[in-house]
Amino acid sequence: MAYSEKVVDHFQNPRNVGSFGSSSDVKTRADIGVGIVGAPECGDVMQLQLKVTADGVIEDAKFKCFGCGSAIASSSLATEWVKGRTVDEALQIKNTQIVEELALPPVKIHCSVLAEDSIRAAIEDWKKKNGIAVAEEANAH
């Protein structure tokens, strides 16, 4: 399958790779929202960590991804898009926008869904840690 130039670029030069600490460290930090979605036996796991200010602005984002090139590109792109947005703005990001930006073929749509899910899961985690009610739609998928 031929990949779009943007997928290849994100694959070769992934943005914002990393984490704000080990899985046990970030679990207790209230300024970090962690979203881990997917499963190894399905062939993709995305981990998104968001550093969020007290008033809900995403200051920084880091990702790690076990998955195909499109999954890596989708999560890399997600980190670029959420940075600087408020959590509510970030929740507006739709997987279809990722599909469009990366020109993903139909068989790779699930990669974009996973990226959207990881944003939701990370924000949900941050909200829970900060005692903010989580909207029902956060579990839409």
Partner: peptide, 19 residues
């Protein structure tokens, strides 16, 4: 890039995680 490699390095058994 792999979150699984991180977990492995931290000594977490991947089969114990609820994915």
């Amino acid at each position: 890039l792999s979150p699984l490699y991180d977990l492995y390095k931290e000594g977490v058994d991947l089969s114990t995680i609820e994915w």
